[in-house]
Design a protein around this nucleic acid. Structure first.
Lengths: 364, 364
DNA sequence: CTGAAAGCGCTTACAG
DNA sequence: CTGAAAGCGCTTACAG
């Protein structure tokens, strides 16, 4: 489909094909082939209507014939924009984030943006590195779930000129757009459910308190307890806090052993996310203990797999895809409008009750 | 930490900070600040030893003070390379690929590369688009799991000058490096296991035959049957083929209904991957049927969640992380050495037997 | 060891 | 409607 067209239609005198293992075709090769100037080729690329149809078609043919691929680096150097967006997340192996990325990508792809996804594993140094790399690559914007509570470097990054939207994290005083889910509420509805099921002594397995989600979910527990106390009849409720270093299956599995000979008055476990809960389940199951059948368990995120584990896991559902999608939309807004006013979008989570927290009601 | 250093240490006469919401600092701002030429700044950046320590430190201070961030676009235009690698996969929501990406990234990050991950969902048009975008962005190399059997456009892409390593797909005649897992073998060991468990009539739920993995896994079944027949005593074995449009949980769930009133002589189901198998499990469970307790089920990939579903899923393990890691290493080799000889790395899968395929042995 | 100059591939006013 | 020219920010020989 390419071949010696070049020779017959005019253009390259020597008949060689510019893309053939020599250098890549440039806009200049296209111009030569089509017998027009560089500027005209550029116009065809960027503002086709400005070019007469006949000329335009000749240029289009030349692009086809030479195998020309526009060099974004050069374009952007002239102010064209990189057409790339960075997305910085905490954990690429958590399906929660995978879904979020999918949401963002579906919003960005139609606009011609390429998404560069970076997983920090909650490591702030990695975050710093990724941000620098993204800035070096001149991404036009960044979606980020901060790995640390301190927004300092992110705000500096933003002030240096790259639009930023926070995902699953609010900005302190509206300096940035954000899309969040109410984690206090989420923690609250989860523990309320457990209490309503009759549990009075509950273990809360939490991730690093540097992660805001972890703190808020835990705070929601206290809110719920306070509310219930005011509303009377509930007797003393006790929360036993256990911290683990990561929100992962492995961390859950590691902590499982220490749960085996737990105070028998404890009847429920709440985990800061589903991976942790699933890890706890696996650890307990592997140990051969029947603890799982005696205790209620709830997670957080409602990732796809949570409905598939055994027993199916009760969880707090967050609109994962929508989080990413909404964040991307905000970013596009900011990209399109320099005078953009920052906005904060907040979703409300809801509880998905499954067997893991209701053995009694199901068995009886 | 920045502030008016500029004024005291020399440099900018007006005392303004170049990064403050004006334009970004360029190499020229750094040069002015440090009272050296552009070339010297560039040398500090690219070949620090060439610059005298005193000068170098002054330049380093200037970089710090001006908040200079190198512009990769400009650098690469001069031939410096984009320091970006593309990875094109089939399905970003399949943990198999997530792990693979993690493997690749761990190999690439230390070398300073940024990974651009693109999920085609098996759609060839999306693949074409992503390849063009990656080429426009001048990625230095691409790791790709082709969405289609036809390697044509990938080979053209490679011939145009970007190194490519195939992942989970062999090149036809060694034109490209590749890292694969023996899927024929995998299909073979999975079905052999079922046959050894006594199953004679087996359903094979397969994805699109345009995906090589699907074809090979199915082919492995035939290989196994042929081998067993030659080795005597096995009576007739029957495979019932069912095709679904995607290798996803949703596709598995959709097909589950049609399995409910299945010929009772069928005692086992084999799925082309774990997501499909997990979807089938979910579909059957949701329907309220007890089919799952009567039938053996095996999947393929051994994603993390497969050991956690109920019943735990027997699966063919592939070294997901290693696949990505090895592919990235091959790419780095090709990047470093133009005279590079293409290599094909092939891993061998193994069977992980769990309850889903051994109810009898476990219950009895 | 340091600096001046050319040029990477493109876009953008500005003439014609 | 089309072309010539300047310049984006950097790197790379090449002089000095």
């Amino acid at each position: 489909m390419v071949g010696d067209n070049g020779a017959t239609r005019g253009g390259l005198d020597d008949g060689t094909h510019p893309t053939k293992d020599g250098k890549k075709a440039t806009i200049r090769d296209v111009a030569n082939w089509a017998k027009v100037s560089l500027g005209t080729v550029s116009n065809v690329l960027n503002d086709p209507d400005r070019v007469a149809a006949a000329t335009r078609n000749r240029v289009l043919d030349a692009i086809e014939a030479t195998g020309f691929i526009r060099n974004i680096a050069a374009r952007q150097l002239r102010g064209g924009g990189s057409k790339a967006i960075g997305i910085v997340i905490l954990d690429s192996s958590n399906p929660f984030f995978t879904e979020m990325i999918r949401g963002a990508e579906d919003a960005l792809r139609p606009e011609g943006y390429l998404l560069i996804a970076c997983s920090t594993d909650g490591n702030e140094e990695r975050e710093t590195n990724y941000l620098r790399h993204l800035e070096e690559h001149q991404v036009e914007g960044v979606l980020i779930t901060p790995s640390d509570d301190n927004l300092g470097q992110i705000i500096e990054f933003h002030d240096r000129g790259t639009p930023v939207v926070l995902v699953d994290r609010e900005s302190n005083s509206g300096e940035l757009c954000s899309v969040t889910v109410d984690d206090v509420k989420g923690g609250s509805i989860a523990v309320t459910h457990l209490i309503e099921e009759g549990h009075r002594k509950i273990v809360f397995i939490n991730g690093p308190s540097s992660i805001r989600q972890c703190r808020d979910r835990r705070a929601g527990v206290d809110v719920a307890i306070r509310t219930l106390k005011n509303n009377s009849n509930t007797d003393k409720i006790e929360i036993v806090d256990i911290g683990v270093p990561a929100l992962s299956i492995a961390a859950g599995e590691d902590i499982a052993n220490s749960l085996l000979d737990i105070d028998p008055s404890i009847t429920a476990i709440m985990c800061a996310n589903d991976l942790l809960a699933i890890g706890v389940m696996r650890g307990i199951t592997r140990s051969g203990s029947d603890l799982l059948s005696r205790i209620a368990l709830v997670g957080y995120d409602d990732i796809t797999f949570s409905s598939l584990v055994s027993p199916p896991l009760t969880s707090v559902r967050q609109p994962q895809y929508d989080l990413g999608h909404a964040a991307a939309k905000l970013l596009l807004e900011e990209l399109a409008d320099a005078t953009h006013r920052h906005r904060e979008i907040r979703f409300t989570p809801d509880l998905v009750v499954r067997e893991s927290s209701c053995k009694h009601s199901i068995q009886s």
